[in-house]
Design a protein around this nucleic acid. Structure first.
Lengths: 419, 419
DNA sequence: CCATTTAATTCAACCACTGAACAAATTGCG
DNA sequence: CGCAATTTGTTCAGTGGTTGAATTAAATGG
């Protein structure tokens, strides 16, 4: 009776491999670095030792490695501590490795560079309607933008350690874009088309290029930029489709096959309006960009997402009745779907991102109303609904930040780079 | 002896503590033990070494510790390997620590003992209507049942290392049952009421008693008993309320506050039937036990769940038209909600458990229909809908198995017990 | 100016893994 | 039957990295 206790998932946390001798240092490098990254103010070696349970001797040795590897620097001025020898505060290095974030969307390309501290060191958005272009041409332009960003990073003394590309669509294994309906892409082999463009210097443990869903990376951006403490949240990207990134306990959940977050096709009126997915009454048909524009009396189903959102926000700010009604209805539909999600996942925060970010003043109230009406546990603990901290550009930033985060989670790859 | 009563906390991935010197052994004990637990057939020390990357010397030393601690035993007969010195197969010990699973439900109490290998060594169900009893009286009876189970375990040479209690309701920190509507419990301090009843011998790292939602533990039972490969699934417990346990990548997801899985209050008809939760159109009002019984023309809203389910199954098997229609409608409503969940979480398996298990032949087809109609990615990869492997009794077994699983995940606690 | 206090480093000791050599136990071939 | 081949498991000196105490460093305060 062979009983299987643990099924190997796609990325299981408990798949921790064997701990060899050197792993000890590897693990402690990560522990100390995480501690420095998570601290409110620059901690001293002694504080880290007290907080982690390691000895001061060990912490000193580990910190030496981190400083030698340009991952950590000593902060000045030193924090005041009172009597005794003054502590030397430790901060993440601002001149070490950095992540490159890229985004391809319907009407713009974006590239940004985020360093270890989380600071956005470089950010370019190039507006252009990409729908007429072939995937190869679009990616060529993206590569040019990436090269610019890389040059800027090098100029700042940074080293790009990896890149993440956000795409508005379903992404399969190996960076294959299965379907990006609004771009008109289908089965596009992004890594293949980008081969030859050196986007980043390969670092052990950091893939040179990760392709991911735009909503996923935007959620990571929110995790990175948002206030600490909300480690379980739903980040909703309201565009033509409605995607969502799910962060549970500080970890992005990608689903069994990497296709989680299809919030737009949650049924809100089971026998309601037919949807292009084949179902009926999907959320997208009530709170998607096209539906809201139509309800507000605007015809531009082909408007870019942020243009549409700002136009709606302008009209709503001017108290246009049709727009206000359209947003109220969309918010209610969104609230119904979100209430279901919160009931299921017990989230404490819902973030309105993408095109929803500028509309949050009008969307959030009905969403909150539906949540408090329908969520059983809302009485015990309130659910926060707030706009995305990074706004519409969070996917590129989130991608770049995810690269930096990976280095913090496993610094040995970077340290092994060149000695 | 001061025993610490605690609830299964929300474990954050980033709380990974420092790796002290001894942790190295601690981690490798877990690595080797997991390997033995996950293997199809008893592996040899050499196979473990090859599979993990550890040296044979290290594996031998680790295995010696595990055998000395009665967590592992050498299997006989030894597996045939061909030429060379014959390997000595390693299996999980059947006479070491074991977990105690308990369940309080509307019309029965249950206790079971599961050993490390996953075998159910003892299982008692005591039928009784618990609703007239006070929580204290009910828990007294439960404690008596637990004492019996403990005696049986000791008789078998087992040592109980912890207990898990399944309750049909919301469980807060510290084992406080906030609300168990069908039991009529509200803010019941279970650990306080059970103080003095030695349910298990405290083991470092294994809380003596964990109180958890019935649906959560049932999902763990399914993870334990179900076929391997489905490490991300939704386990639905259809009772008077509809709860769900969410297993993602082999890990039970509890939610930010431990209250995940309220599937019953997902809206399926936003302005439909009013629900006692204050919302309208909750799934529970269309697929909950009361709704189905009423639709089938049965009045017994107070029937125990399994009785109601078997009665419905009998009627359906006899082709009773009203029952068939009621189940079809319930299945459709369930399918709408589940389709939303699958769209959101990209699950590959949905398990019908609790009272739904015997009704699966009639519920599964409409659920599958709604999924294939509404789930965008169903075209790429099918979603399996199946009845629970353990049936209605999975919560107690799942709780007991979760205790055993904890020992496998962190054996050092058990090994430190008494030398 | 000196006692006090806290931070960081140094250093011998120790723990657990490493790698190679060795012993054990079986198969297969002459 | 005997011996080479083969694979398993153990022994043992060696090493990397943590440990804990002692030591040095650098400030405050009376």
């Amino acid at each position: 009776m062979a009983t299987v206790w643990q099924c190997q998932g796609v990325t299981s946390a408990s798949t921790a491999g064997a701990v060899r001798q050197g792993s000890l240092r590897e693990l402690n490098l990560a522990v100390v670095l995480r501690r420095i990254a998570a601290a409110e103010r620059p901690p001293s070696r002694a504080e880290i030792a007290a907080g982690t349970g390691l000895t001061r001797a060990t912490v000193s040795a580990v910190v030496d490695d981190l400083i030698a590897g340009r991952l950590v620097a000593e902060a000045d001025p030193a924090p005041r501590t009172g009597a005794g020898r003054p502590a030397r505060g430790l901060v993440l290095a601002a001149d070490g490795p950095a992540g490159l974030g890229l985004e391809v969307n319907v009407d713009y390309l974006a590239a940004c560079v985020v360093d270890l501290t989380g600071a956005v060191r470089h950010h370019v958005v190039r507006r252009a309607d990409l729908r007429p272009l072939s995937p190869a041409d679009a990616l060529d332009r993206l590569a040019a933008l990436a090269a610019e960003a890389r040059a800027a990073a090098v100029h700042d003394g940074l080293t790009l350690a990896g890149a993440a590309l956000a795409v508005p669509g379903l992404v399969g294994d190996g960076g294959l874009v299965r379907l990006a309906p609004n771009l008109g892409w289908r089965d596009v082999d992004v890594p293949g088309l980008l081969a030859g463009h050196p986007l980043a210097e390969p670092v052990d443990g950091i893939p040179p290029l990760v392709v991911d869903n735009e909503a996923n990376l935007a959620a990571l951006g929110e995790l990175h930029a948002g206030p600490p403490g909300s480690a379980s949240f739903l980040h909703i990207s309201g565009e033509i489709g409605i995607g969502a990134g799910i962060v549970l306990d500080g970890v992005l959940y990608r689903g069994a096959r990497g296709w989680s977050g299809e919030l737009g096709h949650i049924p809100v009126h089971p026998e309601g309006r037919p949807c292009r997915c084949g179902g009926r009454g999907c959320l997208e048909r009530y709170a998607g960009q096209e539906a809201v524009l139509a309800a507000a009396g605007l015809s531009g189903g082909e408007l870019p997402a942020d243009t549409a959102a700002t136009r709606l926000a302008d009209l709503a700010a001017a108290d246009d009745p049709a727009t206000l009604a359209a947003l109220a209805d969309a918010g209610t539909a969104l609230g119904v779907a979100v209430a279901g999600v919160v009931n299921l996942l017990d989230l404490d925060t819902v973030v309105l991102g993408g095109g929803y970010a500028p509309l949050a003043p009008w969307l959030a109230p009905p969403v909150v109303a539906e949540i408090s009406r329908r969520v059983l546990t809302a009485a015990w603990s309130p659910v926060t609904v707030r706009p995305a901290a990074l706004g519409a550009q969070s996917a590129a930033v989130g991608g770049a930040a995810s690269v930096a985060r990976r280095i913090i989670e496993r610094p040995v790859g970077w340290l092994a780079r060149s000695g």
